[in-house]
Computed example of a mutant assay.
Amino acid sequence: MPDVPNPVAAFIVREIRRGRGAAGMTQEAFGRGAGFSASHVSAVEGGTRALTADFIRGADRALNSGGLFERLAGELGTPSWFLPWLDAERGATQLRYFEPNLIPGLLQSEAYARAVLRLDPCLTDEEVDRRVASRLERQAVLTRESPPRLVVVVDEGAIRRVGDEAEKLMAEQLCHVLACAERPNISIHVIPADAGLHAGLSGPLSLAHMPDGSWIGHLESQLGGDVVERPADLDTLFERWESVRTEALPRKQSLDLIKEVANQWT
């Protein structure tokens, strides 16, 4: 399933189906309340169609559950505020990411993702495990048939930042990035430290180009994240993107720098 790890998605689908049955609703009646056709509901319940954030929210509406299923998705692996962006990420034909401090989630190794998630003191070990699984599941979008074009820009600080005794972890992560960069649909660029101050230092940004030609943006903060769709806001994000992309090294020079840093940790 594209939005949440497969075991979590299967569990949520079963609970939705159970709730529909308890309410005495046919798939057609449920679909009317949720905003989907009966055939769509049948496909989701049968496991032949992906469980999406829109379907989860529709189920909450149809069953008057007070947001129960959206909260389940968050508790069991994916924060609810992130689900709309996951919908966009999975459907996009092109993705653009800028990160000033970390390697983006789509390029994270399992060990690196776990180390990053453990920085949140509110997460239990079980929650960390679920979120790591969810993050790795997301990466399947890059290896599917007709994958999106991914362009990533990171600040040099993101490839040099390590914790105590974490040199081996970072070396493995950078080797993973280099392996990803070998795929024809992935381009990775680094803004060198000597570029000095630049617009991207105010925070990360993401952009997704959809099949209908529209763009969707995403911004994360300490408290969550927001999907950006207003034209004026998207214009601002594009200006920031063009600024950081201009500051970044060409692809080959970027990869050479990543290799150089990786060799320092081995």
Rank of each mutant, 00 (worst) to 15 (best):
V4I: 15
I16H: 02
R20M: 14
A22T: 12
M25A: 05
Q27E: 10
R32E: 13
G33E: 06
G35M: 02
F36C: 06
F36A: 11
S39T: 15
S39G: 13
S42F: 00
E45H: 04
G46R: 14
A50T: 10
T52F: 03
A53G: 15
F55N: 11
F55K: 07
F55W: 11
A59W: 06
D60F: 08
A62G: 08
R71Q: 14
R71T: 14
R71G: 09
G74D: 13
L76G: 01
G77Q: 04
P79L: 09
P79K: 08
P79N: 09
S80C: 04
S80R: 12
W81K: 05
W85S: 05
R90C: 12
E99M: 08
P100K: 01
N101H: 09
N101Q: 11
L102E: 09
G105V: 12
Q108N: 02
S109A: 15
S109Q: 07
E110W: 00
A111N: 13
A111I: 12
A113V: 13
R114E: 15
L117I: 13
R118G: 09
R118W: 01
R118D: 01
D120I: 06
D120M: 04
E127F: 01
R130G: 09
R131F: 08
R135D: 12
L136H: 11
L136P: 12
R138I: 14
Q139G: 07
A140W: 04
A140P: 02
L142I: 02
L142S: 04
E145H: 08
P147E: 07
R149W: 08
V151D: 02
V152T: 15
V154C: 10
E156N: 07
I159C: 07
R160V: 04
E165M: 07
E167P: 02
K168W: 03
A171F: 01
A171T: 15
E172Y: 00
H176S: 09
H176L: 03
A181W: 06
R183F: 03
N185F: 03
I186Q: 07
I186A: 02
D194E: 13
A195T: 12
L197W: 12
L197I: 12
L197A: 14
L197K: 01
S202H: 08
G203E: 13
P204C: 09
P204Q: 06
L205D: 06
L205G: 10
S206D: 08
P211W: 04
G217H: 03
G217E: 00
L223V: 13
V228S: 05
E229W: 00
P231S: 11
L234I: 15
L237W: 03
L237N: 06
F238S: 07
T246M: 06
T246R: 11
A248T: 13
L249R: 11
P250W: 00
R251F: 03
K252T: 14
S254L: 05
L255C: 02
E260G: 11
V261L: 00
A262G: 02
Q264T: 15
